[in-house]
C-alpha cells in the first residue's frame, strides 16, 4: 500500500512533541500506524525532541526524591529481559481496528452505536476532545455521497477502510487529510466498498446544499456543545 496523503511536517512534529490536542493526536496516530514513512519520520522527530530534552539546563534534584524512588524499587513489578521478542509487524494495514482506537472499539466497528445521518451515511461518536472537538467514525455506503458541506473549524480525517473522493482527489485507506473552514466539499465513497473514516472536528459540520440544509439539526444532535 502506498499512502499518498500525509500530515505536514509541522503537524507531525507537534504530535511527536506531545503538544497537539489529544483528539488530533488520535487521528494522526491512526494514520501513522498504517504509514511507514510517517513511522520513520516520527521516530526522527522524537530524536529531535530527545536532543532538545538532553540539552536543557538540568534542574536541581532533592536527595529525598532519590531516596523515595529507590525505596520503591523492590516492590515494583518487574520483568527480566528474555532473548525472544514478540514480533510485531510494522504495518497494520490489514488489521481492522488501529491500536490507538482499541480504547473505544474493542474488536470491530459493528459493535458501535451508529446513527443514521442520511441515506448513505452513518456516524458513531466515540469521544470528545478537551478542546470541544468531536471525535467520530463516519461510515459511507459503497458509492454513497455525502451532502455538500463546509466545516466551522478544522476537520482531521484518516481513512480506515475503503476510499472516498471529492473535488480535490482520491483518499484511500491510510490517507490523512485536513480540511479547514474555507473548504466546501462533497465526498463520495468509491463504488467497490463502503468507506470508514475517523474524523476529528473542531466544530460541527454545516450543510450548505439546498436539499441537505435540513440535515444540520439532525447532525448537531451528536454534538453535546452545539
Amino acid at each position: 500500500m502506498l499512502i499518498h496523503h500525509h500530515p505536514t511536517d509541522e503537524l507531525l512534529s507537534a504530535y511527536c512533541a506531545g503538544s497537539l490536542p489529544l483528539s488530533q493526536a488520535l487521528c494522526l496516530s491512526a494514520h501513522i500506524e498504517m504509514c511507514k514513512t510517517c513511522q520513520t519520520n516520527s521516530q526522527r522527530l522524537s530524536q529531535l525532541g530527545a536532543y532538545i530534552f538532553n540539552h536543557t539546563k538540568p534542574a536541581t534534584v532533592n536527595n529525598d526524591l532519590k531516596e523515595k524512588i529507590f525505596s520503591q524499587l523492590d516492590q515494583r513489578p518487574y520483568h527480566l529481559k528474555t532473548t525472544e521478542r514478540k514480533s510485531m509487524a510494522a504495518g497494520h494495514a490489514s488489521a481492522e481496528v488501529p491500536k490507538c482506537l482499541k480504547q473505544f472499539v474493542a474488536s470491530n466497528y459493528d459493535e458501535l452505536n451508529w446513527h443514521r445521518v442520511s441515506f448513505a451515511i452513518r456516524q458513531a461518536n466515540i469521544c470528545t476532545g478537551g478542546n470541544g472537538a468531536q471525535v467520530s467514525l463516519m461510515r459511507i455506503k459503497a458509492g454513497g455521497k455525502a451532502g455538500l458541506h463546509t466545516h466551522m473549524g478544522n476537520e482531521f480525517t484518516t481513512v480506515l477502510k475503503g476510499a472516498f473522493s471529492d473535488e480535490s482527489g482520491l483518499f484511500q485507506q491510510g490517507d490523512f487529510v485536513v480540511r479547514d473552514s474555507q473548504h466546501k466539499h462533497r465526498p463520495a465513497a468509491t463504488k467497490d466498498s463502503e468507506c470508514i473514516c475517523l474524523t476529528v472536528l473542531e466544530a460541527p459540520i454545516q450543510f450548505t446544499g439546498y436539499f441537505t440544509r435540513w440535515l444540520n439539526p439532525l447532525l448537531r444532535r451528536g454534538y453535546p456543545s452545539a
Binding site: 489529544l22 493526536a25 496516530s29 490507538c100 482506537l101 482499541k102 469521544c127 476532545g129 471525535v135
Partner: peptide, 9 residues
C-alpha cells in the same frame, strides 16, 4: 477528554 494517551505513541 476520555482519550487515554497510553494508546497513542
Amino acid at each position: 477528554t476520555e482519550i487515554d494517551p497510553e494508546y497513542l505513541w
